[in-house]
């Protein structure tokens, strides 16, 4: 297989709060013969809040991150849904507004950078589906996950707004019935669980100011997956992972159920199927313990 190469925008979470996501991304990339050049200069994308405070500053910082991917002449790959949304939104706005692009570049020029619009920005999920291909994944599976019912949890910023998201990958997704993560589960040999909350919100972005709202949303999602007979959940977003995995007690209380379900990162699921060592996947870093391995 031809070696694929991307500029990796890790985002803050993989660096700071989900080390297992960083480890498993690298382990899976190695198995799939993907070279990832980490954008070590990148800043935070604004975590879906900075633009509320200062929209222009948010655009400038995100444009700077993309400019570094452009320097490498590579597609930028994100591993966090919110990084994907904020970065792709910046690209979309700058690519469609010459005046705005010029204003942003005026600032970037002060630090010797330029946003050109030459690099794509895509989530790792779609780099795998579009560039590696699900057939290739199927072919490479050595430990099919056939004994597991796996509930996909897409995360909002992977599927909405679809008008923007569908410009960032070839596999067009319907946000009311997305299939990409389901297809990946199937390619890994697992059984995908269909449940109402798979495309709903986990509440993460309101958990500080509205903890009750956030916990009810997370709890409803975990309960939906549980009622669909899921053995575990899987998500392409580390923020969804944090909300679902680390606050199982709060979610349980919010919906009046005793919930307990492991929540894996997409990369950990692929890694398990491709035969990565469990130590490479960081399964010991989960709060809701991964007890099925």
């Amino acid at each position: 297989m031809k070696k694929l190469k991307y500029a990796l925008f890790t985002g803050c979470t993989a660096k700071q709060s989900t080390p297992e996501q960083m480890m498993s991304t690298l382990a899976v990339a190695k198995k799939l013969n993907i070279e990832l050049i980490e954008l070590t200069e990148a800043s935070c994308c604004g975590a879906s809040h900075l633009q509320d405070y200062d929209d222009f500053l948010s655009l400038v910082l995100n444009a700077r991150n993309i400019a570094y991917a452009e320097k490498h002449e590579l597609t930028m790959v994100t591993i966090c849904n919110t990084c994907q949304l904020n970065t792709a939104m910046t690209k979309y706005r700058l690519d469609n507004d010459e005046e705005l692009k010029a204003k942003v570049n005026e600032k970037l020029l002060e630090v010797g950078l330029e946003y050109k619009g030459t690099s794509m920005v895509t989530h790792f999920l779609y780099a795998i589906i579009d560039d590696v291909g699900l057939d290739k994944i199927k072919e490479m599976v050595v430990k099919p996950l056939s004994q597991f019912n796996i509930a996909p949890f897409y995360g909002c910023h992977n599927i909405r707004p679809s008008e923007l998201q569908n410009t960032t990958h070839k596999t067009s997704q319907n946000p009311y019935n997305p299939t990409s993560l389901d297809d990946l589960i199937i390619a890994c040999g697992g059984k995908n669980v269909d449940y109402e909350q798979k495309n709903k919100c986990c509440g993460f972005h309101a958990e500080l100011q509205a903890p009750k709202t956030a916990s009810i949303l997370a709890g409803t999602a975990i309960a939906g997956a549980t009622d669909g007979n899921a053995d575990w959940m899987v998500t392409p977003c580390p923020l969804c992972h944090i909300k679902l995995d680390t606050q199982m007690a709060e979610s349980s209380k919010a919906v009046g159920r005793d919930l307990k379900l492991p929540v894996l990162h997409m990369q950990q699921m692929i890694g398990l199927a491709l035969g990565c060592k469990t130590s490479e996947l960081g399964l010991n870093h989960h709060v809701s313990e991964v007890n099925f391995i």
Binding site: C12, Q16, S17, C44, A47, E207, I242, T246, E250
Partner: peptide
Amino acid sequence: IGKHGILAQLGSLSNLSATMKMYKKGKTA
């Protein structure tokens, strides 16, 4: 962002119990 470029901590500061659980699992830097 001004100090580090990235966010210092994503553990829930308003939720100490969840933060402690994350810390025990090596989840919060």
